[in-house]
Design a protein around this nucleic acid. Structure first.
Lengths: 340, 340
DNA sequence: CTTCGCTATAAAAACGTTTTTATAGATAAA
DNA sequence: TTTATCTATAAAAACGTTTTTATAGCGAAG
């Protein structure tokens, strides 16, 4: 029978003006306390819930942040979403996840002011023109896993160079001297950075850098399996002390190949990956790997975005270090000759 | 310098009224085609993007569905979100994921009309009064994993009773007689239903039902690991033929515990889980489990909700059957005594 | 006494749309 | 020729808020 209860209904019922109701509800401190509590009581009694569209239209604020991503599949995303939404809660914002591949959808939601600020996962195809449009509208954004050209926006990314560097340093610390790298997909930023870090560490410790020690594994188990097998067949005498694989899947493929040739990991050869995927700890041997601090990325992202919104701060680029997780696939260099 | 471009700016620039602009943009077929294309061209040139709050305030529609959940962690959720958002796309809706534990947030977003319809994951504490409020506002909702009291709302749930029943029947079919159940979280509907199904199957086949054979694993690997270990220590002579774990994580914890005591799975004891999580097939041994058709649940959910919204259909309750996936963690009963 | 300023509230404007109603001009019917 | 109908567009109202501006009442300062 009775339709939606509006602020007008509350005003009439409480015998005051709608501005008074608004002030009471929004805790604006200009009202007589008695009036305020009376209004609140009436609102409660009528089960009044403000219409957010009206509210947001006028105020220009939604107190919502939007996370735009092409996918939400896999542990990376749910860990990220989990930590971001928790942090939003703390700061009084809501987090809204939009799963879409359509850039049009993204831009119309952003410029259409459905949210106060946005987190954008790479690969949505947001370009300079889009960023310019956002800037013009004074919309704040933080990008994940993307190097930003525009100073105006924020970005919180993992430092893959540092990760590659540290991982290699760790292997060197175990006494390994001949370290091979199994590359991922060469068009991907992460892949290239990890390799550069690997090379930098080798140079730093004056270890030989050889093209032969860079294999192509394409971030996949099978490709890596084949690549390692061909390597072993081609250079049986040049077997490295350790393999640093572009990611954990690749590390698994590498270990499978070594096993199939009768080598033991980690006794004969150490193998290390990146990402710390779920399987890493269950695999045999459990993988030594570099873990990204996803929860931390989520928290920093929200903090940064909220500062940009509330304190009108400029966006900047922050890099996160990886964390080396030592498990069973790596071992201090063990020289068979010493044994004999 | 120049602020947000509104429909008014487009109207002025194109030399028409704002209603004409609105009609052109919304493809209302009353305009002279020349006028329409002219207006569209101007809108394009000005990079006009409609303000969604204004739009939604007036029209009363958002073309958005909201998924409200306490958590988004784990494969169940990302598979569900993935399939729901894909189906939303197809039907011209956007899907919005709200991760929150605060019922107040949920209700204010729902009654505040931020979305046209909602999908609610259980455990948010939505009660009859809330549902009544939604009904009064004519808001459509579909509940997941929850038995509904109110006829007016929809629900698409997995038949966990059936799943528990069928899984147990499968184990019985392998020749197992002493079957233990590792319970999940007792406040969760699924957990309780699976256990009831388990009990029903035991009764059906006149097998003994014992309280000792119901362990508490809380749907977690570690809790289950500890629970199973304590069981083994407490009743070494009463070891069951098979464990039916409340979910796959629990099954893994169970197997770890059995392994640590020197038992072999499945030769000594069969273990079975629920959910078919990603690790299930990689685990050693690969898990026998009951798979829910998550993608199907997502599609049915969206379809149902959209029908309720667009065709003003009544909500109803649908149940989905699980599918038993036989892998390496279960085996026909093998009696060591026969061997000796 | 005025006048000023302050307090508590009300009234009105504004946010950016869509929708409803009005209007001018053209075409068709009488 | 007049009137009615239709077409294309414009004007105005409405959606439900917040924010800005106005106002009545009152105590204090001159």
């Amino acid at each position: 029978m009775m339709g939606k209860i509006t602020i007008r209904d509350v005003a009439r019922e409480a015998g005051v003006s709608i501005s008074t109701v608004s002030n009471a509800l929004n805790d604006v401190d200009v009202l007589n306390p008695a009036t305020k509590s009376h209004v609140l009581k009436v609102a409660q009694r009528l089960n009044y819930v403000p219409n957010l569209n009206g509210k947001q239209l006028k105020s220009g604020k939604t107190m919502m942040l939007g996370f735009f991503t092409t996918s939400v599949t896999g542990p990376y995303f749910y860990k990220l979403v989990e930590s971001m939404s928790r942090q939003c809660d703390r700061l009084g914002y809501g987090l809204n996840v939009f799963v879409t591949k359509d850039k049009q959808v993204v831009m119309s939601n952003i410029l259409g002011r459905r949210v106060d600020g946005v987190i954008i996962y790479e690969e949505l195809g947001i370009n300079d023109k889009d960023i310019h449009a956002m800037n013009k509208e004074n919309i704040k954004a933080v990008f994940l896993d993307r190097v930003l050209q525009k100073e105006s926006m924020g970005s919180i990314i993992f430092d893959s160079f540092e990760a590659g560097y540290e991982a290699t340093k760790y292997l060197i610390g175990l006494g390994h001297k001949k370290i091979a790298y199994i590359s991922g997909v060469d068009t991907m930023f992460d892949s290239v950075q990890r390799r550069e870090g690997y090379l930098a560490a080798l140079r730093q410790y004056s270890l030989p850098v050889s093209e032969d020690y860079i294999l192509q594994g394409y971030f996949e188990e099978e490709s890596t399996f084949n690549a390692v097998k061909s390597f072993i067949r081609a250079f049986p005498e040049k077997l490295p002390d350790a393999f640093l694989a572009g990611n954990d899947l690749s590390a698994i493929g590498c270990i499978q190949a070594l096993k199939s040739h009768g080598y033991e990991v980690p006794l004969d050869i150490s193998v290390m990956g990146f990402d710390d995927i779920d399987i890493a700890q269950y695999y045999s041997p459990p993988l030594t790997t570099v873990r990204n601090q996803i929860a931390r990325q989520g928290i920093l992202t929200i903090d940064h975005l909220v500062r940009m919104i509330q304190k009108k701060e400029q966006g900047n680029a922050q890099k996160l270090k990886g964390e080396i997780i030592v498990r069973g696939s790596s071992h201090v260099k063990f020289d068979r000759n010493d044994q004999m």
